[in-house]
């Protein structure tokens, strides 16, 4: 073989031979999770529209409900906005929690997960990283909706500072609640199925709640449903916080459902995730 070595052939050979020596210890779980979180943030950077996708519906509802029904429901649009906005914040973040599952399913269906899984690193890393990035996503979408509300005239009685504990509580709720969608994402074939099924869960949860109206005028059976709806419990706790009168009992009650969901669907997700496909 007197043929001259081709440039790419030589380059490939050199690339392997020049591979840096890597410490036998693979990166630790925390650093793996942070790296995957960085990946998720890069995706938001390249496609910032994914943040706007999830706030379009809440903003539309805010504008529509406030100006169309606000006067009739609460006497004035201003009074209704004061009532509605904390609920809309919750709705925004609950909607956003679908995204972890949606992106997880997208990754799997694209095959990039095969590479991740063939790496000798802490295997739940991609999920942990996605959840870390979700904190950013929840906070960003919450802030966007809050700013829109403020521009429309919303003023939290507890002062603007109250939005910080409110966002923290909503993050905690959404991180627990999101496990339903990660488990769902690992059980169905396509990302759009995740979305469709998620809407079937989210629509009744957000409408049969106290987000839009005071349940006092609803029939008794519906009041019973609304009063145990985890979304209602969260909205009540958030309204207290935004009003400057946080209630420890209400906050604990709000965290009960996401805690249970995480306790059940967390292990289910991990089981589905580790199960070889």
């Amino acid at each position: 073989m007197s043929e001259m070595t081709k440039p790419l052939e030589q380059a490939a050979q050199d690339a392997v031979l020049s591979a840096p020596a890597i410490a036998p210890r693979p990166p630790r779980p925390v650093s793996v999770s942070l790296t995957y979180a960085w990946r998720a943030l890069l995706k938001i950077k390249h496609m910032p529209e994914q943040l706007f996708d999830v706030v379009v519906t809440p903003i539309m509802f805010t504008v529509m409900f406030t100006y169309l029904f606000g006067g009739a429901l609460a006497g004035s649009t201003d009074a209704y906005l004061q009532f509605l906005l904390p609920g809309i914040l919750v709705q925004t973040i609950v909607f956003t929690s679908v995204y972890t599952g949606f992106t997880l399913n997208t990754d799997i269906s694209k095959g990039v997960f095969d590479r991740f899984r063939s790496l000798p690193v802490w295997s739940p890393g991609p999920i942990a990283g996605a959840m870390l990035a979700d904190v950013f996503r929840f906070t960003a979408s919450g802030v966007i909706v809050f700013i829109i509300g403020t521009l429309m005239g919303y003023r939290p009685e507890g002062g603007f500072i109250a939005v910080i504990p409110a966002l923290m509580l909503m993050n905690a709720f959404a991180l627990g609640f999101g496990w339903i969608f990660t488990a769902l994402a690992l059980s169905v074939r396509t990302p759009s199925t995740v979305m469709t099924l998620a809407w079937l869960v989210l629509m009744p949860l957000t409408f049969a709640s106290n987000i839009y109206v005071d349940p006092a005028t609803m029939p008794g059976w519906l009041q019973a449903v609304v009063s145990v709806n985890p979304v209602s419990l969260l909205v009540s706790a958030i309204r207290d916080i935004m009003a400057g009168t946080p209630d420890a009992g209400a906050i604990l009650l709000a965290l009960l459902a996401p805690g249970l969901i995480a306790a059940v669907f967390g292990p289910v997700t991990m089981w589905l995730y580790r199960r070889e496909r």
Binding site: I22, S31, V32, R39, L42, H46, M47, L119, G125
Partner: peptide
């Protein structure tokens, strides 16, 4: 969704 650079940087970091 990531650039070529980001793809390789991601896997370099995951490789330690």
């Amino acid at each position: 969704d990531l650039t070529g650079y980001e793809n390789l940087l991601l896997l370099s970091r995951l490789s330690g």
